[in-house]
Amino acid sequence: MGMMSEFKKFAVKGNVVDMAVGIVIGAAFGKIVSSFVNDVLMPPVGMLIGGVDFSDLAFTLKEAVGEKAAITINYGSFIQTALDFIIIALAIFMVVKGMNSLKKKEEAKPAEPPKPSNEELLLTEIRDLLKKD
């Protein structure tokens, strides 16, 4: 039972839960960016360079023989994947930059001056009383 309680304690820690949420959201965000690159960004780029579909770009090393498939280097798919990565990295950079600026704003807030101790309050009262006389 000790191991289960340790696991439960580990699993419900804030960092683990935050990390799990981040991974799930990151995976979903990756799918959105891939769709954006493949379905929105690459068709116009392909049209601008002569109606090329990037997913079809490949070097054929060996032609198909019978039932054996051709051996190709699919550099068009690589270009799309690299573009996916660049867009995801840029988006994550912007999010991290925004979070860091929020943290800096919180840190930049001036801290409240410390409250005077009981001795200081007592001495202040004595001083004020002596001024009156």
Rank of each mutant, 00 (worst) to 15 (best):
P43F: 04
G50F: 09
S34F: 04
L122I: 07
K97G: 01
E6N: 12
S117T: 12
A11R: 08
L129G: 13
K97M: 06
I86V: 15
I49E: 11
V12Q: 14
L129M: 14
K131D: 12
L48K: 12
E120S: 04
D53G: 03
G2Q: 11
A27H: 06
A27C: 03
A20Q: 05
P43T: 09
F54Q: 00
D84V: 01
K8L: 15
D39V: 09
G14K: 08
T124V: 11
L48Y: 08
V65N: 03
A89G: 02
T72I: 14
I32Q: 08
I92C: 09
K9T: 10
A70V: 01
V24F: 07
K115Q: 13
L57A: 01
G66D: 06
V12N: 13
V21T: 05
M1G: 13
D53A: 10
P110D: 06
V21W: 10
G98K: 14
S77A: 12
Q80A: 09
V52S: 07
Q80V: 08
L102E: 13
G22C: 05
S5W: 08
I73R: 07
I126W: 05
G76Y: 03
V52E: 09
P114M: 14
I79R: 03
K115E: 06
I79M: 02
V45M: 08
E106K: 15
L123R: 02
G46V: 04
K103E: 13
I79V: 11
D39Q: 12
Q80S: 06
K62W: 07
I87R: 00
F10S: 04
K31H: 14
D39W: 00
L122Y: 09
N15C: 01
R127P: 07
M42G: 05
